[in-house]
């Protein structure tokens, strides 16, 4: 013989516990400096787990990848120059790109008219890009890297979603900040190569 109904009461106590904890934990978060502004993501924690997106954000992991960007040697806020640019317009990225969303025009020397190892135009159709990261994998010059910017919504498709060479360039400082581990590894590799 079983006594029915007891588990119903237990279930009610569970939901009531969550109801109360959502308030007590909320007060703790409001008044304890140590916890303020942190988002709850651990399963052992109680209380409200909602991340209120536009105001609160989760840190994206370093290897999170969205769109490719071009790297130039420089500080944040600076404008890129052909001299600081890493890209050599070799076109490997455009060749490996599975959806074929990269379009490169090689720069020409204005005096001789011969091609120079720089890109004069570089377009990525961000709506076609599937964020696979193959371009970054294959780039022999560490010039194209995957970025973290994911808020790319727009009202139309033909103009603002075709990123040009100015829009694609980010500084090494920015890249070192968003990808500290990868940056350290790359620097280490470059140093070793230079020693050799």
């Amino acid at each position: 013989m079983r006594i029915y109904g007891l588990e119903l009461l237990r279930g009610l106590s569970v939901t009531l516990g969550h109801f109360i904890a959502s308030y007590t934990e909320g007060f703790k978060r409001t008044f304890a400096n140590r916890l303020r502004g942190q988002v709850r993501q651990d399963p052992s924690e109680r209380g409200i787990f909602t991340v209120q997106y536009p105001e609160e954000r989760l840190r994206v992991p370093e290897r999170f990848r969205v769109l490719p960007v071009l790297i130039f040697n420089g500080k944040e806020g600076e404008k890129w120059t052909p001299a600081a640019e890493r890209c050599t317009a070799c076109g490997i990225c455009a060749k490996v790109c599975p959806p074929q969303c990269i379009w490169i025009v090689q720069a020409k020397d204005p005096a001789s008219g011969k091609p120079t190892p720089k890109a004069s135009e570089f377009f990525i159709d961000v709506d076609v890009c599937m964020n696979c990261g193959l371009c970054a994998e294959f780039c022999p010059f560490d010039a194209i890297k995957m970025d973290h910017t994911f808020e790319l919504g727009g009202q139309e498709r033909k103009v603002s979603h075709i990123f040009d060479i100015d829009k694609l360039h980010v500084s090494t400082e920015y890249y070192a900040k968003t990808h500290p581990k990868a940056w350290a590894q790359e620097e280490e590799a470059r140093r070793k190569k230079a020693v050799k």
Partner: peptide
């Protein structure tokens, strides 16, 4: 509101 609190939401 009450249902949301019981499900750890706002």
């Amino acid at each position: 509101k009450v249902i949301a609190r019981m499900q750890d939401r706002f």
